[in-house]
Design a protein around this nucleic acid. Structure first.
Length: 453
RNA sequence: GAGGUUGUAGCUCAGUUGGUUAGAGCGUCGGUUUGUGGUACCGAAGGUCGCGGGUUCGAGACCCGUCUCCCUCCCCA
């Protein structure tokens, strides 16, 4: 070993077996997206900085990977901004491009830019990597794949319903035994803030409530107090911490709790529609659960908020999503409502690995290795190789005249299911020897019999 | 961005209060076997002890810095 080599932190290489398993996840999700009429698009891995900056809140900007200007562009650096201690502006002058942080904001840019070529409602899916300069942890990487499906140009709740069904179908097809689809609505959160008179502190209020299951009731109360939320307001919110029951009971509770807030009641009606419809057309394995503490994507969600957690694993959410009424508004196209979901393929991979749920076929396809003896036998083998490949069977010939021991070891290590031997003896009898690498059995066949297996 | 933790062979890890030439298992390669893998036996290769500096007669071990791994917070997939 001469130099210490490694991938940058938060990134990984994928061995052939891992790539096969990942492709299985992508393919499964892609098929479901297509069955619901979503069409594929792709966008560049990096965008203009200004497209991304400021779209994910203050925290988000910190986590965006910036791309340093190259060559003479370096000379354009805004030294004055640096001397005035205006670091964001200085940074922008150094890096006019940045790696995409998610697929939603680039999609909003895409819709605005190509609006003349799209017909609405536009349903697209997109499976590409995103980058976040986050500190790596269990299930958190700096480079990871998102599989997004969004509908833009329709405010029908049928879209939300379809997306919930897509969660259910995809994860069921991936053989996940159980998962909860958590549902909330930004209008409920606005309603809560309104009812306790803290509309202006919505984000602080809600991010504290979001931690309920993590730090408990007292923890949330402490945090609210630290953030300067009044005692009165906290008292008004308190009932939210303890109420429980099924979705119907929760809705009843909210209807009463939010009855002075028009927007809150609107949120309740939206949730109520989804809960009712899902119960009429039940999900396969997913459990739909109202969770008013759910507070994701506050920076742009305006209606539904969705999150999926797998059962029986210690892992953050594996999918997210929600409705955003004004996302394209940021890029100048008003009045276009969107709603979308995102699958975290890397986390799903970790969950499937942990629960041992990858199907055997993904890794153990039929594969045949032909032993390589010499030039004389090669022409006979080549005919068989072509025959198998025409039938769609994976096969290969060992590339050199190595001793048999070595060729068999190769077959074993690479999970070949069969080895075919064609040597002088077999050619003389117009036969082949076929060895089953799993059982160890070996038999003699004619060449025709071999191809017809 | 804040706090904690880890780093010795390709991998998982030993290495005593600082003291000769830094070890094991697994893996790799070769042989036992020039027409047979997965088991067994024999042998070999492989290490600037993360990096830089300091203390010391002497540092893998102690001190400082730095990078990295993993974890908590923040936030999220």
């Amino acid at each position: 070993m001469s130099v210490k080599v490694s991938t940058p932190k938060g990134t990984r290489d994928f061995l052939p077996e891992e790539v096969k398993k990942r492709n299985y996840i992508f393919t499964t999700i892609r098929k479901v997206f297509e069955l619901y009429g979503f069409e594929p698009i792709e966008t560049p891995s990096f965008e203009m900085s200004q497209t991304l900056m400021g779209k994910y809140g203050e925290e988000g900007d910190r986590l965006i990977f910036r791309i340093l200007n190259s060559g003479d562009k370096m000379k354009k650096a805004d030294i004055q901004a640096l001397s005035e201690d205006n670091l964001p502006r200085f940074a922008n002058s150094l890096a006019e491009k940045a790696l995409r942080y998610d697929l939603t904001v680039p999609f909003a840019r895409f819709v605005v830019q190509h609006q003349h070529a799209l017909s609405f409602p536009f349903k697209r899916y997109q499976i590409q990597p995103v980058w976040r300069a986050d500190r790596p942890q269990h299930g958190r990487y700096q480079e990871f794949y998102q599989c997004d499906a969004d509908v833009v140009g329709s405010d029908s709740l049928l879209c939300e319903l379809e997306l919930i069904q897509i969660f259910d179908q995809s994860l069921t097809k991936l053989n996940l035994p159980g998962f909860t689809i958590k549902l909330n609505n930004r209008k409920i959160l606005s309603g809560i803030a309104e009812v306790c008179g803290e509309q202006r502190r919505l984000v602080e209020l809600v991010t504290a409530i979001d931690k309920l299951d993590k730090i408990g009731e007292q923890g949330v109360i402490d945090e609210l107090r630290d953030k300067g939320i009044s005692k009165d307001s906290i008292e008004k919110i308190r009932p939210l911490f303890t109420f429980s029951g099924n979705n119907e009971l929760k809705l009843d509770f909210l209807r009463t709790f939010l009855n002075t807030s028009a927007i809150g009641i609107q949120g309740v009606e939206e949730l109520s529609y989804l809960v009712r419809t899902v119960s009429q057309f039940p999900l396969e394995r997913g459990v739909l659960e109202l969770d008013i503490t759910l507070a994701r994507g506050l920076n742009y969600y305006t209606g539904a908020i969705l999150e999926v957690k797998a059962h029986d694993v210690k892992m953050g959410s594996i999918c997210g999503g929600g409705r955003y009424d004004d996302l394209t508004g940021l890029f100048g196209l008003k009045g276009l409502s969107g709603v979308g979901i995102s699958f975290g393929a890397d986390r799903i991979y970790d969950v499937l690995s942990e629960l041992n749920l990858f199907p055997d076929e993904v890794l153990h396809q039929k594969k045949i290795l032909f032993v390589n003896f010499d030039e004389l036998t090669y022409s006979h083998v080549q005919k068989l190789l072509t025959g198998f490949r025409n039938k769609g069977v994976i096969c290969e010939i060992y590339p050199s005249h190595a001793k048999l021991q070595k060729q068999f070891k190769y077959a074993n290590d690479k999970n070949f299911t069969h080895v075919v031997i064609v040597g002088l003896e077999e050619i003389k009898n117009n036969s082949v020897a076929l060895k089953d690498m799993i059982t160890g059995d070996q038999r003699i066949l004619s060449q025709e019999e071999l191809l017809n297996l």
